[in-house]
Design a protein around this nucleic acid. Structure first.
Lengths: 208, 208, 208, 208
DNA sequence: CATGAATGAGTGTTCATTCAT
DNA sequence: AATGAATGAACACTCATTCAT
């Protein structure tokens, strides 16, 4: 249920069975939320239904989460961690790429990640409170990643540009256009074209 | 509770008291939603609370709305109509302006509209299902407005551009950057600078 | 369900239907608690069961009581008010009686009041928090009643007695012996004999 | 957690470690109930909380008690055994005392025993069903003790008295007045005075 | 024997909705 | 039309109890 193209490294180290089991249960619960959500819609996502879909008792759910809200927050964190890892990976893998290639890789990766599960993301944003812990951190890290990427490519940017402004605009463009390409494309515009146009727009802005 | 800088024309013509009264009640209910939402948060927005805050009985609420969802949809529509009007007005007022001036006016208007009530808009968008009727219409009209604006300024655009792609990217940029400038500015970036940078980015893209 | 030998005066005055109805519902709920308790035991006294037994919906129960605890408190108050009235009435009715006759009337009245419903009183004392508002007041009023009764009969009391001590002991004796006569009589001791012996004990103490 | 002034004799004899351990665990559990009760109130007394406070696993609790109720019954029994011992000891120690001195010793002992832990005793009596096995035995033994004491002092009693009635009234007076002196004294009445007045009342009754 | 994760029936409570007045 | 008391399905959550390890 997590992003398919995100490598979630399995620790080689040994874990006490209890902890492994616990981790499995938590994952099962988070997966169950997505499962129920997609199968029966947001209103059907009740704690008892989650438990049932996860194959555990409702009591067990409350062994791992203090309340319903906490489940959504955890789900949110998992998503954020996925995207985080995606961004970091893309950044590293494109250390020697041109600015355009980096942007293209980034747009491809993020767009594809969101192609999977439209309704899920809507729910997560509607259930998880705004200033939830992990969210702010993510914004900071997201901006940090782009600042890093741009700082190392000053020669490819327009002259005398203010990095703060660049980062502000670029992060919003990436997020919005990837989201749009994946979920809000107008009829008649292919996914491929949408992504390419997004890249073109971002690059154009950076080069001015 | 609607956008302050949007002119909501009052019909001069006469209406049967009943209809005027009905309109007033509907408005009172929608305003009550906003009031409760801002004062006590999303979870406190119950139909009974809405009725109370609107100064009408719960029975009256159901006289005007078939169910709770419908109230949110109406609220959403009201906001959308405001923005719609804003866009149309800006378009008309800048009929003879340069592309850059048009974009600037648009960014200013939309950003300012969202500066008023940050939390409100997020909640509204998260509560009402995205594919709700009114939203789609808005997207269509929003795109239509920009298509119109761009189609009349082909000479200011880059050569051989596909209007569909342009509209797709521009609408997303406007929405995202205005939203970002109003609600998600990083510390150290002023509202003025954010808006100006947004304009620069959009214009840069259009001119490539 | 209230004490049968307590006159609960019906106001002659007019009440708005709403308020009369409300009062009826509240009474029905309190009666329902007693009903369920006696029929199925303490563990069966759930809010839903109370509602069912009262012939109202669970929602209505929560219209009149903020939570389950409040129902027990109200029941407690009702009982206390009954006993209160009982004591006051007995006091007045025996204004001209001898000390012994007054004590006898008091013992009779209170004992008989508790003969009705043993399990009920146990539950009430176990569910309602100790220092609940009305309880303290009752103790004060109970003591006040006896202080009044004794202060007017100093010639029938032992010489140079301290009223505070008399009241302390007498109130405890009355409460305990009436309770005991009604609920904890040893086999072979009739209710009549138990009451008479209680009277003898109390009078003996007062005359020393 | 048991009464401090009650000597709980430690058997000199040898026991298999298992049994000693078992006894210790049972005691730890009962003490844990009291601990949780006093610290967090009746509602917090859950089996898991008891286990935690006792420093044993929930499984172990169920090794020694068939269900939750049984824990309360055992706790009750422990208290009753303490009081029982107290009464017996006082009786023996006052074998040659006058009636008044015996009553005084009894009142002192029982009152002091309850001075320690007001809230505890009330909760215990309200939680455990009144007709629980151990309780009845206690009542029988309590009455037996006083019957014995009074039977040996007929010359100090009023003439032609019925022992059954005497015992009924005296046991209730002792219990109620000791309880009252310890827990429900009115402001302005000292513990010493309350006890002495209780003695005076009981003796007065017995001598009539 | 000890453990404590797992269980799930059952609880108190909420709130969108109805309808007699 | 307007009212608001009444409804009751549905929910989040608890906790006594079990049992595999």
């Amino acid at each position: 249920m997590s992003l398919p193209n995100v490598k979630r490294p399995k620790r080689a180290g040994w874990r006490r069975p209890t902890q492994r089991r616990a981790r499995q249960t938590v994952e099962a619960i988070l997966d169950a939320v997505v499962k129920v959500l997609k199968r029966d819609g947001l209103k059907a996502v009740t704690t008892n239904r989650i438990a049932e879909a996860a194959g555990v008792s409702i009591g067990s759910v409350y062994q791992y989460f203090p309340d319903k809200q906490a489940i959504f927050v955890a789900l949110h964190r998992r998503h954020i961690d996925d995207i985080d890892r995606l961004v970091a990976t893309t950044l590293v893998e494109n250390a020697n790429s041109s600015l355009e290639d980096l942007i293209r890789s980034m747009v491809e990766a993020i767009t594809d990640a969101h192609t999977v599960d439209p309704e899920l993301y809507h729910m997560m944003f509607s259930e998880v409170p705004h200033r939830a812990e992990g969210t702010k951190d993510f914004t900071v890290r997201f901006r940090g990643a782009f600042r890093l990427a741009l700082a190392g490519r000053v020669d490819e940017l327009g002259k005398a540009r203010d990095l703060d402004k660049l980062v502000f605009v670029v992060t919003h463009m990436v997020e919005s256009l990837c989201h749009g390409a994946a979920l809000r494309r107008p009829p008649g515009l292919s996914l491929t074209d949408a992504k390419e146009e997004a890249v073109r727009a971002i690059v154009a802005y950076l080069r001015v």
